[in-house]
């Protein structure tokens, strides 16, 4: 099971700088990052090699931070891979709340990170259909 660190940030200069500085000081590697924003504030989601350590370090700086489980699915870096995952989830009635992906090795391997309402169920559906799910360490080693 993979973990994602979410951070509350105001929409103003220097927020990402501050967050990444904390992570750099703790020697934490970032695998993926996404930002979504609304009226003057946003949520930054980060996938890192040491999520608990990242969470503790950010919280210690007084930054509102949340640690949660997400599903990281391995897929081939070729047309139709993402569709296959979506298809399986749709057939089983799993609704995706948020998703993002990143390529591990171009033309070979990519990872899709998804947040769903019913995490254990989505996990077993994917595993049953032969998908490989990654742990925190594996995300970084893959």
């Amino acid at each position: 099971m993979a973990h994602q660190v979410s951070v509350f940030a105001e929409n103003k200069p220097g927020r990402i700088e501050k967050i990444t500085r904390v992570l750099a000081q703790e020697e934490i590697n970032i695998r993926a990052i996404t930002i979504s924003s609304a009226n003057g504030f946003g949520v930054i989601k980060i996938l890192v090699d040491k999520p608990q350590k990242a969470y503790d370090a950010l919280r210690a700086q007084g930054i509102p931070t949340y640690l949660q489980e997400v599903i990281a699915v391995v897929m081939e870096d070729k047309p139709g891979s993402l569709h296959r995952i979506a298809q399986v989830l749709t057939e089983n009635g799993v609704n995706i709340e948020d998703a993002y992906g990143f390529v591990v090795k171009s033309g070979e391997k990519a990872v899709l990170v998804i947040q769903v309402e019913n995490q254990p169920r989505a996990q077993s559906v994917l595993e049953r259909n032969g998908f490989e799910l990654l742990s925190d360490e594996a995300i970084y080693q893959s």
Partner: peptide, 18 residues
């Protein structure tokens, strides 16, 4: 100011709070 311990990583919840 929001309370750190009541942040659950969810943008929609924050927007609803606002």
């Amino acid at each position: 100011e929001i309370k750190s311990e009541l942040f659950f990583g969810d943008l929609q919840k924050l927007e609803r709070l606002r």
